[in-house]
Computed example of a mutant assay.
Amino acid sequence: MNLLIDVNVAIDICSQRKPHAETSALAIDMAASNEVRLWLYCGSTQTLEYNLYKQLSRENIAAGKPETNKTVLSKARRLLTEFVKDKQGSSTKPVELSLNSHRCSLRFCVEE
């Protein structure tokens, strides 16, 4: 079975966004344990990066700990990289995507 992951599910997990993070993580875990193939639309990677960046910025401001845009963007990219690490199947090849002059390797999109 194939499952297309919504951008918001990834944002929930990466940012631990309440109240959805736990449910989103559970859905991903259930899919993995039932051998469901997870997909993330490659055209949404910049949207994902931007929305995660905005979420992290909002959280920092709300906590009274504003950070520079560069720091928040770097954190967003690191969290996205961590998010895809354990979801990369062996039957897929990496897709190189440009994220504002940086490159990110995701393995959700193209079958060999």
Rank of each mutant, 00 (worst) to 15 (best):
N51E: 12
V84Q: 11
A62E: 09
N60T: 09
H20K: 05
M1E: 08
S91H: 08
V7A: 08
D6H: 04
A21H: 05
A10M: 13
L40Q: 06
A76L: 06
E67P: 06
R37Y: 15
Y53Q: 08
R17Y: 12
E35W: 11
K18M: 11
F83T: 03
T45G: 00
C42E: 14
S33A: 08
L26T: 11
G89K: 00
L48N: 04
L97A: 03
Q16A: 11
I5N: 00
D29L: 10
G64R: 02
C104T: 02
I13R: 01
A76N: 01
K87P: 03
S33Y: 10
Y50F: 12
K75W: 11
V84P: 06
E96V: 08
L26E: 12
L4W: 08
M30I: 10
G43M: 04
L48C: 03
A10V: 15
S24D: 05
K93Q: 14
I13A: 01
L73K: 06
M30T: 11
L73I: 15
V36P: 03
L79P: 02
V95K: 05
L4N: 01
K87L: 14
R77G: 09
V36G: 02
N69R: 15
V95R: 02
A27L: 14
A25C: 07
P94E: 03
L80S: 04
V95D: 02
Y41S: 06
L56I: 13
L56E: 04
S91L: 14
S101W: 05
N8P: 07
S91R: 03
N2H: 09
L3G: 01
V95L: 11
E111R: 03
E111L: 09
V9K: 00
K54L: 15
R107F: 13
R17M: 11
Q88A: 10
K54Q: 14
T45Y: 14
R17F: 13
G89W: 05
Y50S: 00
K85S: 13
C42L: 07
N100D: 06
R77N: 06
F83M: 06
S74Y: 14
L48D: 01
T81C: 11
R37I: 11
E22V: 11
R77W: 12
L73G: 07
Q46E: 10
R58L: 13
D6T: 02
R58N: 13
E67M: 14
L38R: 00
A63W: 10
S24M: 08
S105W: 09
